[in-house]
Design a protein around this nucleic acid. Structure first.
Length: 271
DNA sequence: CATGGGACCTGCGAGC
DNA sequence: TGCTCGCAGGTCCCAT
């Protein structure tokens, strides 16, 4: 579920409610991608000062240090005053005086890591190489073009790498490239400036719109505790192999790039 | 140092 | 019905 829009929508759904809450207890379930890095009891009594997002990570600033949360491929967060008994896929319960923040993550690619500061080696190992935020002022077309010039790989894989711009996951990489009319296999370094400009705009547009729509689908998501809503964003190409392109009716194709499925329209997207 | 492949883990649907 | 296989929203780590 979690690409940048869902992580951001998740953040907005509980950031205000958990602000200034005091941690009463932290219970960890099965191992996640990395160990917490601190005794859970050491966090008792600390307050949550703010909830920020960096790429697909959520950062919970504490009195001492911060927690980095990642939802991996299958993670979701729920913040509620009452939580049912933890199930087999609930791997973190952060009990606070404002409610319980629960991480549900069947595949356990997610993470909950404590770091002494954002500049610490622990935090920088995860955040240090991340590219710019696409929905904030720092996403500049010229800098984007310059960075792409240095990359020999296919544009789709460069987007997924996240070291130039963050937040574009497997769904939105396909969607943005469709919107920009660019074949996913084109070498990043060979994109003309006008095409880079179109891609830049497409990334911003597709992510911003998803955040908006995520906001409206979040109610369903939280209360139904399912994936409702995510695919309500009618994908143009993602998951539509063989179906007619919404623009030109050509059958949408899929292919494998770096172990990930890519979807594209062979007519609308030029090599 | 950029790049590509493997690894991590579980659930689900398709096909036999 | 029951089993096996392939695939799924991410990204770090390690050879090359």
């Amino acid at each position: 579920m979690p690409e940048l829009p869902e992580v951001e929508v998740t953040r907005r759904s509980f950031a205000d409610r958990i602000q200034s809450a005091r941690i009463l207890d932290l219970r960890m379930g099965k191992p996640l991608r990395w160990p917490l890095g601190v005794e859970p009891s050491a966090l008792q009594g600390q307050r949550i000062l703010s909830v920020r997002r960096r790429g697909k990570y959520l950062l919970l600033d504490l009195d001492e240090g911060l927690l980095l949360l990642h939802l991996g491929m299958s993670g979701s967060l729920n913040f509620a005053t009452q939580q049912a008994p933890a199930g087999p896929h609930d791997h973190m319960d952060m009990v606070t005086d404002r409610g319980v923040l629960r991480l549900h993550d069947p595949r356990r690619f997610g993470a909950v890591v404590w770091a002494p500061s954002e500049n610490s080696a622990t935090a920088q190992k995860l955040l240090g190489h991340l590219g710019v935020e696409p929905l904030e002022g720092g996403f500049d077309v010229d800098a984007f073009a310059l960075a792409l010039k240095k990359r020999a790989s296919a544009i789709k894989q460069v987007l997924l790498a996240g070291d130039i711009v963050v937040g574009v996951g497997n769904i939105y990489a396909s969607e943005a490239l469709f919107m920009a009319g660019i074949r996913p296999t084109v070498k990043a370094s060979r994109l003309s400036k006008p095409r880079v400009a179109r891609l830049h705009a497409a990334i911003v547009q597709v992510l911003a719109r998803a955040v908006q729509q995520g906001g409206s689908s979040l109610k369903d998501f939280v209360s139904a505790e399912g994936k409702t809503g995510y695919f309500q964003l009618e994908a143009a190409v993602y998951g539509r192999t063989g179906a007619p392109c919404r623009v030109c009716s050509s059958p949408i194709r899929s292919m494998l790039q770096g172990q990930r499925t890519t979807f594209y329209c062979p007519t609308c997207q030029k090599p």
